[in-house]
Design a binder for these strands. Structure first.
Lengths: 245, 245
DNA sequence: ACCTGAACACCGTTCAAGT
DNA sequence: ACCTGAACACCGTTCAAGT
């Protein structure tokens, strides 16, 4: 413990975890455009350049932040439980595998709801980070277990991960540019009233969805589409197993 | 025709369409980060500030560019044909509706393949542009025609549009940071060899997908997942119609 | 080994001035 | 009505200098 007090200003001390967690805090609070290296340095109480000792640049920092959150999703996927949809089968292998997929997908979706910048950011950066690969692996294994062909496994896994981040990004986008202090119901109302101002002939279907949109719950909406995909995968599995019989 | 020649430099003349189309050209050529207002002004042969007479800023310009491409997808969706998957029914209403959805989804996917920056950009900007609303309307109407409940229509339409842009963004991301001059097969090989360097126990499934990944075709992969969703929607429709019988 | 902050080469946006 | 480009307030990144 150096107890030597002096007039020279204290030098700040950082760590990669500390940098990433306050970066995530800023992103959650101010959005993607609100994260600035200067602001981050200020919040860390240090100098601008020191960040570059831990990280190669802003892009790598964002990539690491995403990877950390995908990591949290992986942890949550192992602990969470979920009641899945009614399946066409009670084959325990299939029921367990589909439940696993559902938990995995839901866990990442949850993270994108907590961190609205996450889904678009995951798409903006293509690099396959370690936890993204683990996530993909976690989507693939159950598909192999239920007996799909390699092509079906491959297509199914990318369909699932594309669906998760796609719908998540779609939902985040509505919150992204909105004032976070206004209650959610008010924001939905405002969006709906914009629809209703559009041509009721050209947008007749959209108009018919106004109530639906006001009532909707993001989690249920996400789960509903997910179950369409999972149901399709179950059918592929069942078609295969009757082939073999 | 003013034939008066003079020593004073010619003033450039712009139009919104011209600005958007050269902006799209630059985006296609150089990617999202390559588009700069200064570069755009240079390529237009004019001054930097004049762009602001036509457009409120860079964000609006990107939004308009996206909207234009969604517009092209809408046009293509009406002219293209596609052979859909084998359905569980030959109800002409359902067959026609599913074919319509398939064409619409494919048409936007095609645009995202031509313009790799499009899918991530669509997600980054939440604002519902005119053609995005038309696109959504085009996804919703067929779902109403086949007799789904309003909630099913709503969830189904957002699942479809989330899937389309999600998978599209996923695929674009692989090309985004890659050297576009190298042949596609080489790039795939390089990605696969990175996988194979990972732990074969932790990533056993991923390793088993190496060949699949090398062989895969983005269009087929996209269509396969799309058909999972469409198949699920057909089943919902059939379940409803037997309820009524 | 780790931190600092001035300096550099960029951005998007604004605006007084032009035609 | 439309265009221009200097000026402004930012960025991310680099690096010589510090501890």
């Amino acid at each position: 413990m150096p107890a030597k007090s002096s007039k020279t200003p204290r030098r700040a001390t950082h760590s990669l975890e500390q940098i990433l967690s306050t970066a995530i805090e800023i992103l959650d609070r101010e959005g993607s455009k609100g994260l600035t290296l200067r602001r981050l340095a200020g919040e860390l109480g240090g100098g601008l350049g020191s960040i570059y000792w831990y990280v190669d640049g802003k892009d790598e920092m964002l990539s690491l932040a995403c990877d950390a959150l995908v990591g949290r999703a992986l942890v949550a996927a192992e602990t969470h439980t979920s009641d899945g949809p009614a399946l066409e089968t009670d084959d325990p292998v299939i029921v367990e595998a589909i439940g696993d997929l559902r938990r995995t997908a839901m866990a990442l979706f949850d993270q994108t709801q907590i961190h609205p910048w996450l889904a678009p950011q995951l798409h903006a950066q293509g690099a396959a980070t370690p936890n993204s690969l683990r996530y993909w692996e976690r989507l693939g294994r159950p598909l192999a277990r239920i007996g799909l062909t390699p092509t079906q496994q491959f297509n199914g896994s990318t369909a699932l991960s594309g669906y998760v981040t796609g719908v998540a990004a779609e939902m985040s986008a509505q919150d992204l540019h909105a004032d976070p202090h206004r209650p959610k119901a008010e924001r939905l109302d405002e969006i709906v009233s914009q629809w209703l101002a559009s041509d009721p002939d050209e947008f007749s279907w959209l108009h018919s969805m106004a109530d639906e949109f006001r009532r909707h719950d993001d989690d249920e909406q996400f789960a509903a589409g997910l179950d369409l995909l999972l149901g399709g995968l179950v059918r592929q599995a069942l078609a295969r197993s009757t082939d073999r019989d």
